[in-house]
């Protein structure tokens, strides 16, 4: 509000309208936070399931045999970088630079798609090697946890694609800005979940024989 002109020229009604609009945006973003927290509980349940079943390999391979840490690291790096570029997209949007915003979202999309591709390749490798979710409780819970994250990433990619089209068509205004903020919250959230997956599934899995 610092750039407001002196009070004689302020249209009080207009200011009130702006404040109200701002409140409304905050309500939406707050609602989105609450949604993310419910998603957090959802992932929490999956982590609990994974922890309970991690040793139930039923004669099949465990994490130490299956997981390759360098591979998981490449996945992690591509996702973390995508989170960084997503942040750059938000910064560009705040500067109202449509071109840059679109550019960084495209980069984010590509990195996210790379991550998803790597993940699906890993899934395919396991399944082709006879270690699908049928094999054991451990593999069921692995596919459920990592797969749910992958499903979220897929939704995120669809969202990024739609959002980019939306920005190209409408430019950067109050509405698109609000949605860009929510999209970036979503994307960063998936990043945080992945950090936990990387630690609990891959690191612990590869370390414990």
């Amino acid at each position: 509000m610092s750039d407001l002109v002196p009070s004689a020229q302020v249209d009080v009604k207009e200011v009130n309208r702006l404040i109200e609009r701002n409140d409304e945006d905050n309500t939406t973003i707050f609602g989105f936070w609450v949604y993310l927290m419910t998603d957090c509980v959802l992932f929490g349940s999956l982590f609990a399931v994974f922890t309970v079943l991690r040793n139930n390999t039923f004669g099949g391979p465990g994490g130490a045999v299956l997981f390759s840490l360098p591979y998981a690291l490449i996945e992690t790096l591509s996702l973390l970088t995508s989170s960084f570029t997503c942040g750059l997209a938000v910064l560009s949007a705040q500067r109202k630079s449509k071109k840059q915003t679109v550019f960084w979202f495209v980069v984010t999309f590509l990195l996210g798609a790379t991550f998803l591709g790597l993940e699906l390749t890993e899934f395919h490798k396991f399944i082709a090697g006879g270690n699908s979710w049928h094999r054991s409780g451990f593999l069921s819970s692995y596919f459920a946890l990592v797969g749910t994250h992958g499903l979220h990433i897929t939704i995120g990619l669809i969202w990024i694609a739609v959002m980019t089209g939306f920005i190209l068509k409408r430019g950067i205004n109050g509405l698109t800005m609000k949605r860009i903020r929510m999209l970036s919250l979503f994307w960063h959230f998936l990043d945080v979940v992945w950090i936990f997956i990387f630690t609990i599934v891959y690191l612990f899995g590869a370390l414990h024989a």
Binding site: F58, H134, G137
Partner: peptide, 12 residues
């Protein structure tokens, strides 16, 4: 055919 809650296959 996963094994989360099955009696065999490492379910619980």
């Amino acid at each position: 055919g996963t094994h989360f809650f099955t009696a065999g296959g490492g379910g619980n």
